[in-house]
């Protein structure tokens, strides 16, 4: 192993918590089971690393193999940074027939066309996800394996998820993705999260959808009839109505675990009618950020508990309906929608 391979291995091992080391090395599948058992996972990291390096040298492992370890760890632990979603548009006729081998070869070739030193590693998982690790260099420097970009794409879908992409590399990745997936344009989807799974579920609708026709029946089954059919009934009806409105906006089941949503408000002041600011044409600017360990569930609970007024405002329900968590809100101008899509500058 050369100096660089050791440095990267050290970096990767440091990132992995002690209790996950064994699983990560097993998933990597580059050491024999005897070698894996001979390692003491309770050792301090520096000592463990020494022993690990000697095993790697026995097996003549190289930098390439070390990057595979990092990739295996990220695949098992994707919530290690903020992922951003991108959407592909205008699929060309042959887009549906792109297979993994084609995609991989094309992507590599297109990236190498524009960036002389680039290292690309790909892996297709059982669920169809294609994981791509890109270490960027330029004409004069070797690929920087310390800050790789990760890209996850499901073939034949129009979504791409990206982690750690520097803006100077964006055009290169855009172009390579468009050419290898056979699309014409690509745009940021205004959705970002630490949870790759939540984003995927939200965009690919892999969570329990809202079926308004079924709602009424299930709700009646769940809510026992009130024992005192006077005031309690009215309360129960209100609660049920709130719950129904909450479910109509966010669904009834387990929701994708989104943590944040950001709204940039560029609207006029809307306060009490007697405030003079109401008459002004100037905007009342601000940014609202919602955060929770499960944002959509929090919203649903806010509505059903009466902390928010129903029906749910389109601003909030847009998160599930449009699969976005970043919005710019402007005032309705005649003939235009109240929410214009955000374009990050």
């Amino acid at each position: 192993m050369d100096e660089q391979a050791r440095a990267i291995l050290q970096r990767v091992i440091r990132k992995i918590p002690n209790k996950k080391l064994q699983t990560a090395l097993r998933a990597w599948d580059h050491l024999s089971s005897e070698q894996l058992e001979s390692l003491d996972y309770a050792q301090p990291k520096w000592l463990f690393l020494e022993n690990l390096i000697s095993r790697c040298e026995e097996n003549r492992l190289s930098l390439k193999d070390v990057t595979k370890l990092e990739m295996a760890y990220y695949i098992d632990n994707p919530s290690k940074g903020t992922w951003h979603a991108y959407q592909l548009f205008q699929a060309e006729g042959d887009a549906v027939s792109v297979n993994f081998t084609q995609f991989r070869e094309q992507l590599k070739a297109h990236l190498k066309d524009v960036v002389r030193h680039v290292s690309v590693r790909t892996k297709k998982l059982e669920d169809g996800a294609v994981w791509i690790r890109i270490a960027w260099g330029d004409n004069f420097s070797k690929p920087n394996h310390l800050k790789p970009t990760y890209v996850v794409h499901y073939l034949q879908t129009s979504y791409v998820f990206v982690l750690n992409l520097m803006s100077k590399h964006k055009p290169f990745l855009y172009q390579a993705l468009l050419l290898s997936t056979r699309h014409v344009s690509i745009k940021e989807a205004q959705l970002s999260s630490r949870s790759l799974t939540a984003m995927r579920d939200l965009l690919m609708r892999q969570y329990q959808q809202v079926f308004p026709t079924n709602q009424e029946r299930t709700l009646k089954e769940r809510n026992a009839p009130p024992s005192h059919p006077s005031i309690e009934k009215e309360h129960a009806e209100c609660a049920e109505r709130r719950h129904q409105m909450a479910c109509e906006a966010f669904g009834d089941g387990v929701l994708p675990k989104l943590e944040t949503a950001v709204y940039k408000l560029e609207t006029k002041y809307r306060g009490n009618s007697n405030n003079t600011l109401n008459d002004k044409d100037e905007l009342f600017r601000g940014v609202v950020m919602f955060s929770s360990s499960n944002l959509l569930e929090s919203f649903r609970h806010c509505v059903s508990a009466g902390m928010a007024e129903g029906p749910v405002t389109p601003l909030l329900s847009s998160i599930t309906q449009k699969g976005r968590n970043s919005f710019v809100i402007t005032d309705k101008v005649p003939g235009a929608a109240s929410q214009t899509p955000a374009h990050k500058a």
Binding site: V288, F290, S292, L295, S298, M307
Partner: peptide
């Protein structure tokens, strides 16, 4: 709410 919701409002 369940889970708790944090709201940050930054005004110009």
């Amino acid at each position: 709410s369940q889970p708790p919701l944090d709201i940050a409002y930054t005004v110009n």
